[in-house]
Computed example of a mutant assay.
Amino acid sequence: MPLGQRAGLRSRAMYRTMRTARRARCGTDVDCADCPSVRRCWGEKLPQGFGLHVQRQPRLERGTTLFAQGERFEAACIVVAGCLTLRETMPDGTERIAGFRLPGELVGLEGWSRGVHSFTATAACSTTVCRLKWPQRVSGSAALLERLLRKTAGQLDSAAKPWAGLPAIERVAAFIEDFARRMRVSDASLLLPMTRAEIGSHLGLAEETVVRALAQLQRSGRLEVKGRSVTLQSPPHRSAAFAAS
């Protein structure tokens, strides 16, 4: 490898390390037991004295990178508000959308085993995350591990939905229903932070196919679509991917 190229790689690696260090320094220490978002993040109120502290990061505006693919793993994060898009650059240079992380979901945990992050996480909209201090000793260490395992299992279950075997229209319907379920919306209205192209990349469909599928779902009365605003019919239709859920 030419010297100049090696120097460029070192410079980029140094920049990523410095950027991560800056994020860690500017985080605000938060005791999860005292945080009003604790139920959204952990599904229940934590007992006082549980001892789980996180670092609330400055708000990420749309397009801001939380961490990059190949960046050294330092901590997993939990999404408090907003949405993160996970992008993966393939060996041939093409990019795919590996998934989306919503409030209450973990992001970056896969880097724990590999030592580096497998994806680039960027904010799809104004997003707030907290960094889990890693490692940390808390009075409820066993309970914390159980919560982390439950979250990881739930996210794996969501990722394993058989979208690939469905027709395009049902694939898009399943994605919308899954998004609504994960957002735990109190009504049938959603605001999708991602573009049609990003949905298509995630589902293995062309952008035009996603647009046509949404139009078909609207004509059939299953959805009402206005830009990024989507309203599910009430009660929501259960697509084939979730019929057994």
Rank of each mutant, 00 (worst) to 15 (best):
R96N: 09
L102T: 03
A81L: 14
I97T: 15
G82V: 00
T89N: 00
V79I: 13
D92P: 09
P103W: 04
L106W: 06
C77I: 08
I97E: 05
I78E: 09
L102P: 00
L106F: 12
T85E: 12
G111Y: 15
A98L: 00
L106N: 04
E110D: 12
T94K: 13
A76L: 13
V107N: 02
L86G: 08
A76R: 07
P103I: 02
W112D: 00
E95F: 08
S118G: 05
P91H: 13
E110I: 10
L102N: 03
R101H: 02
V80N: 01
L109N: 00
G93S: 09
E105N: 08
A76G: 11
L102M: 08
I78L: 15
G115E: 00
E95W: 06
R87P: 01
E88W: 08
A98E: 11
G108T: 02
G82I: 03
R87C: 07
A76K: 03
G115F: 00
V80S: 07
C77S: 12
R114I: 11
G104P: 14
S118E: 10
S118T: 13
R96W: 03
G104D: 10
D92L: 11
H117K: 02
E110T: 15
V107F: 05
R101A: 04
T94P: 03
L84C: 06
S118Q: 12
A98C: 05
T89H: 04
M90G: 00
R87A: 11
I78A: 12
P91W: 15
R114A: 13
G108E: 06
V80G: 01
F100K: 07
E88H: 13
G82Q: 01
L86W: 08
R96L: 14
V80C: 02
L106H: 11
V116K: 00
G115V: 00
I78Q: 13
D92A: 13
D92Y: 07
W112G: 01
G111M: 02
G111R: 05
E110A: 11
V107S: 09
I78C: 15
V79M: 06
G115M: 06
W112H: 02
H117V: 03
T94E: 14
H117L: 02
S118W: 05
L106Q: 10
F100I: 04
W112M: 08
E105I: 12
T94G: 09
R101W: 00
E110M: 13
V107L: 01
L106T: 11
T94R: 14
G99Q: 09
R101K: 03
L84G: 13
S113K: 01
F100A: 05
T85W: 02
V79A: 11
M90C: 02
R114K: 07
